[in-house]
Amino acid sequence: MNRLMKPGARERETLLNSGLLSALGVESVTGMMEIAVIGNLPARQMLFREGEPADTLHCVLSGYVRVYKLDPDGREADVELYGPGDLIGASVVLDGGRYAATAQAAEPSLIARFDLKRVRELASRRPDLAVVLATALSAQLSKAFASLADDRLHTAPQRVARYLLTYCPQDGKAASFRLPYQKSLLAGKLGLAPEALSRAFSLLRNHGVNVRGRLVHIGDPEALRRV
């Protein structure tokens, strides 16, 4: 990570609106801001590696960070894709051991860093911070369970359809939008190989989905819901 510095006005605003700080009282916000430092993470640079001592809590301010696991043969399995406002790996606050996965910038990103020892010390005095950290951990665990169930219960086209529908209005009208990140990242997020994602997009053409690069047009969201 490039040179670390204290958050400026824009970074402070992003932090204040993040899931980590938005629910805190004034004293806890002040305490977290005092220990926060920020730094730029170039695309593909590692934030931390699996097995390294966990000494820092991270919050994404801009860009996306890909978290993945490696098997002994060097194959990668995506765990999560974190975007602006997301807290990366809340579990390290409690277990205090080593990072359980590897984190890498998917694109140029701005990251806020909090010294983990100081976060724990502050949480021991500030119940609202302890509750927020526990809530973040619970939310990430629930999301992991939901992702596991989605992998078990739905085919690749169904997973892609469910993701695309999150961008569609509830009134059932046609929708056009741009994917927030490259298709390779979307594939990992959905637990698919890139070629499986391409095949799913091809199959979904029959359900009114037209994809050009990162631009997506859905002509009939109701048809997509029936996939």
Rank of each mutant, 00 (worst) to 15 (best):
N2V: 12
P7T: 15
G8D: 15
A9T: 06
A9P: 06
E11K: 00
E11Y: 06
E13W: 13
E13F: 11
T14D: 13
L15F: 11
S18G: 15
L24W: 06
L24N: 08
G25E: 11
G25R: 12
V26L: 14
E27S: 10
S28Y: 11
S28C: 11
T30Y: 15
T30V: 11
G31Q: 14
M32T: 13
M32F: 14
M32Y: 12
M32G: 01
I35E: 12
G39W: 06
N40G: 13
L41H: 03
P42S: 10
R44M: 15
M46E: 05
M46K: 07
F48R: 03
E52F: 02
E52M: 10
D55M: 15
D55R: 15
T56G: 05
L57P: 00
C59F: 14
V60H: 04
G63D: 09
Y64N: 01
Y64C: 01
Y64K: 00
Y68R: 00
P72E: 10
G74N: 08
R75W: 13
R75A: 14
R75Y: 15
A77Y: 11
D78P: 02
D78E: 11
V79C: 08
E80Y: 10
G83N: 05
G89Y: 04
S91P: 02
L94E: 11
G97H: 08
R98C: 09
A100L: 08
A100I: 05
T102C: 10
Q104G: 06
Q104I: 08
Q104F: 06
A106Q: 02
S109P: 03
R113W: 07
F114H: 03
D115C: 09
K117Y: 12
K117W: 09
L122I: 08
P127A: 12
P127H: 10
P127T: 10
P127W: 13
P127Y: 11
L129M: 12
L133I: 15
T135M: 13
A136H: 05
A136W: 03
A139N: 14
A144S: 13
A146M: 07
A146I: 07
S147I: 07
L148C: 12
A149Q: 06
R152A: 12
R152L: 15
L153W: 07
R159L: 10
R162I: 05
L164M: 09
L164I: 04
L165D: 03
T166C: 05
Y167V: 01
C168G: 04
C168K: 01
P169L: 14
K173S: 15
K173P: 00
A174R: 04
F177W: 05
F177D: 06
F177G: 02
R178P: 02
Y181W: 09
Y181T: 01
Y181G: 01
Y181N: 00
K183D: 05
K183V: 02
L185T: 05
L186K: 01
L186R: 00
L186V: 09
A187V: 06
A187K: 02
G191Y: 03
E195C: 13
L197S: 07
S198N: 10
R199M: 05
L204V: 08
L204M: 08
L204C: 06
N206M: 13
V209M: 03
V209Q: 02
N210A: 14
N210Y: 07
V211E: 00
R212E: 04
G213K: 05
G213F: 06
L215F: 10
H217G: 00
I218S: 09
I218G: 00
G219M: 06
D220E: 11
R226F: 03
R226A: 15
V227D: 03
